[in-house]
């Protein structure tokens, strides 16, 4: 059995005020994007009100797109692999000695330090 949910809107909240104007101006038809924000608001209210969400991605996927808006990235821009220029692999002679460094390892004499 589920709880009966009564949604209450805050008439003093700037977002709610804006939404009222938006709905009036568009005769109740909002874009997909706006509807997604409204669902996001609803899901946030669910969590704030102590409910648990069955499907966390319903919250995180729209949030990810919203973060893009915050960073001025296109909401729909797909991920694209970055082309990286690779250096031509050099042919190495097979029996070349590997240079381990000529320097003598530095020996720290603890007595000197003291």
């Amino acid at each position: 059995m589920l709880a009966k949910k009564n949604l209450e809107l805050n008439p003093s909240h700037p977002t709610i005020k804006t939404l009222l104007e938006l709905v009036k101006a568009n005769d109740g038809t909002l874009s997909e994007e706006k509807l997604e924000y409204i669902d996001l608001m609803y899901n946030m209210a669910l969590i704030n009100s102590g409910f648990s969400m069955d499907e966390p991605s319903e919250l995180t996927a729209p949030l990810e797109r919203l973060i893009r808006v915050g960073f001025n990235v296109d909401r729909e821009e797909p991920c694209e692999e970055i082309e990286v220029e690779l250096d031509e692999p050099e042919q190495q002679p097979e029996d070349e000695e590997i240079d381990m460094g000529d320097d003598e390892p530095e020996i720290i004499n603890l007595n000197d330090e003291l």
Partner: peptide, 20 residues
């Protein structure tokens, strides 16, 4: 939702879900 109404109980939040 069962009902949508205008609240007089909220301060900072745009919306909240009360239960019947």
């Amino acid at each position: 939702v069962e009902k949508v109404s205008i609240s007089n109980k909220l301060v900072d939040e745009p919306l909240f879900i009360f239960t019947s």
